[in-house]
Simulated scan of single mutants.
Amino acid sequence: MLTDTFDRRFSYLRLSITEVCNFRCDYCLPEGTDCGPEARAHDLSLDEIRRLVTAFARLGMRKIRITGGEPSLRKDLTDIIALCKQTPGIETVALTTNGYRMTKDVDDWYAAGLDAVNVSIDSLDHAKFKMITGHNKLQKILEGLDRAAELGLPSIKVNSVLMKHYNDDAMDDFLDFVRERPITLRMIELMQTGDNPEFFDRHHLSGDVVIDRLRREGWQERLRGRDSGPAREFWHPDYAGGIGMIMPYSKDFCATCNRLRVSSQGQLFLCLFVDEHQSLRHLLQSDDPEPVMAFLQEAIKGKDYSHHLHEQNAGATKHLAMIGG
């Protein structure tokens, strides 16, 4: 199993399959991106993804999260889900999406083996949602969530980036949303990246504000699972759903890190906020997994104990669409 010099074991791969996104979220890609074929020409191929996932699985990876950009812009997303699920050793296949294609495609994703979906919804107010994303698609996305629940998808979560002046006054709406729905709503602290320092300074808000309220209202924290992501999960007996908090600026956030990232162009990210990325694409041109495994085993030795966000160093990550957060 992949183990770093701090004795952290890595069982969770976040795999970006494209950097392009059709939304224009203020904190990530306010100017949008080119979503045409040329912008996606250098994305990993299906064969390259198969070879990559095989090598990671042989080194103990048990969970694959497919991210972007917006992964559903790839027409072969269902095939990617299926190949990940069919790889020996992989137990969980998850997807992070903006949800705009869920009503059309979630049935196919589920049939291909999808175990979990996280949908980005930064506001439940239609006007604010359009202001943040540039699209008036909240109702369709909510319908897609309902369809995922009807299918019986084992894990359904909503991701919301916590932002001052955008949704810091919307906690009542978020709590009402999970009162009757078996969905976890996760608040994610706004993170500084290379392209958003001024936005970050204006809108960052500590998740401690939310946790203080949850505890006052009787919410309790769950124990963290082996292959869980970084969220602190809270539950309440009067609610069908839960609340999760992802707080990268909190003390010891990196102590339990169990995940690695690979970009849509085959670059290994030992951390979301490293200064340099290591390309392994040249090793994905053969079906032999041994060179990829050897590369990963050597690379993991160079993983730092922590990111350096507290020093306002976001590394080489210009925006989160590069690697899916």
Rank of each mutant, 00 (worst) to 15 (best):
L214R: 04
I211C: 08
G194N: 02
G194R: 07
D208M: 05
Q192I: 14
E189C: 09
R226K: 15
D208R: 05
V209M: 08
R186S: 10
D201N: 12
M187W: 13
G218A: 00
D176V: 06
R181W: 08
L185H: 12
R202N: 09
D201G: 09
G225F: 13
R215V: 15
S206E: 14
V209L: 12
I188W: 00
M187C: 11
E180T: 14
R179S: 11
L223V: 13
E180K: 11
F199A: 03
T193G: 02
G207L: 09
D201S: 13
L205W: 00
G194H: 08
I183N: 05
G207N: 12
F177Q: 01
D176G: 08
N196R: 04
P182V: 02
Q192E: 15
R186T: 11
D176N: 13
N196G: 06
R216S: 13
S206M: 05
S206T: 11
M187R: 04
P197Q: 10
M187T: 06
E217R: 04
H203Y: 07
I188Y: 03
M191H: 01
D212Y: 02
H203F: 04
M187S: 05
E198D: 15
R222E: 14
I188Q: 01
Q220K: 14
D176C: 09
R181K: 15
L185S: 03
V209T: 14
F199H: 06
M191T: 01
L190W: 06
F200I: 08
M191D: 05
D195V: 05
V210N: 03
H204Q: 14
I188K: 00
L214F: 06
L190R: 07
I211K: 15
I211L: 14
R202Q: 12
E217G: 01
F199Q: 01
R202G: 03
L185N: 03
V209I: 14
L223T: 12
D201Y: 03
R216Y: 05
L190M: 12
L205P: 00
V209S: 10
L205Y: 04
I183W: 07
H203R: 12
H204P: 02
T193V: 15
R181T: 08
Q220T: 15
D176S: 14
L214K: 04
E189I: 03
S206N: 13
R226L: 13
I211N: 03
R226N: 12
W219T: 06
D212F: 01
R215M: 14
R226G: 07
L214W: 02
I188G: 00
H203P: 09
L214Y: 02
R224W: 11
R213Q: 11
V209C: 03
E217I: 00
I211F: 05
N196S: 08
T184K: 10
P182M: 04
F200H: 15
N196P: 10
F199P: 00
T184C: 10
E221L: 13
